[in-house]
């Protein structure tokens, strides 16, 4: 079983070292690759200095394109499992082995690490939680399935979905939309309770200013994703 951790990184100089250490210590069976999406800080220099495994994108592709690069790499190199993992210190690598077990045992195509099953750890602001609950509602409306944490960036997939995501993956804010696509095509998605931390450095890609655009774009994309099949 070849397993790969995909770490999309845009200006993550401050968090990356800790993240890699976390993976090496707590998920030693996993390979990892950092996707440097044209960071303007010292992310690339740090990857080189420490000899980290990284992919350096020649042009900025945004989070969707960066993660897709990881899936493409995993697919080309024969990995059986790939997991998206944020480089900003929000995720803990200690959950990865259990996620892989769940993926195999339940025969799922995707396992999502959810903050909202046991409701422990960092729960995000109330406004964000409201938005997340709305996505949960919309997914249920569109597919009939319950996903408690559709915006979670901690998602593990098998080779079947790797191939699918290599062909097509949303450009920005990809998580809720791709969940709808995957569920619409009758793939199996399970969730697993995880505890996430508040990010240590950097800020969320979604601020109040583009929050409205985010909600409208993602809602629309989810409906279109459902209509494709």
């Amino acid at each position: 079983m070849k397993k790969l951790v995909i770490i999309p990184a845009f200006n993550e100089e401050g968090n990356l070292e800790k993240t890699i250490l976390d993976i090496k210590e707590n998920a030693p069976a996993f390979d990892y690759v950092i996707i440097n999406d044209c960071s303007t800080d010292g992310t690339l220099a740090m990857c080189r200095r420490h000899g980290f495994s990284y992919l350096n994108l020649p042009v900025n592709l945004g989070i969707g394109g960066a993660v897709q690069t990881g899936y493409r790499y995993a697919y080309y190199h024969g990995y059986d499992i790939a997991v998206q993992f944020d480089g900003d210190g929000q995720h803990s690598a200690s959950y990865l082995p259990e996620m892989a077990e769940r993926l195999e045992e339940t025969g799922s195509d995707m396992v999502i690490g959810s903050r909202f099953i046991t409701k422990e750890g960092f729960q995000s602001s109330s406004l964000r939680r409201l938005g997340i609950r709305y996505f949960t509602f919309l997914i249920r409306l569109l597919t009939g399935k319950k996903i408690t944490d559709p915006t979670s960036g901690m998602r593990m997939i098998n080779r079947k979905l790797m191939e699918k995501f290599t062909e097509e993956y949303p450009k920005d804010y990809p998580e809720p939309e791709s969940v709808v696509t995957v569920l619409s095509e009758k793939h199996r998605v399970t969730e697993m309770p995880v505890i996430m931390n508040e990010r240590e450095e950097g800020s969320s890609s979604i601020s109040l200013g583009n929050g409205v655009y985010y909600m409208v774009k993602v809602s629309f994309a989810m409906v279109i994703a459902r209509m494709k099949r």
Partner: peptide, 10 residues
Amino acid sequence: LSQEIAIIRK
């Protein structure tokens, strides 16, 4: 293309 380039370089 960008993705392929990044992968090939690695």
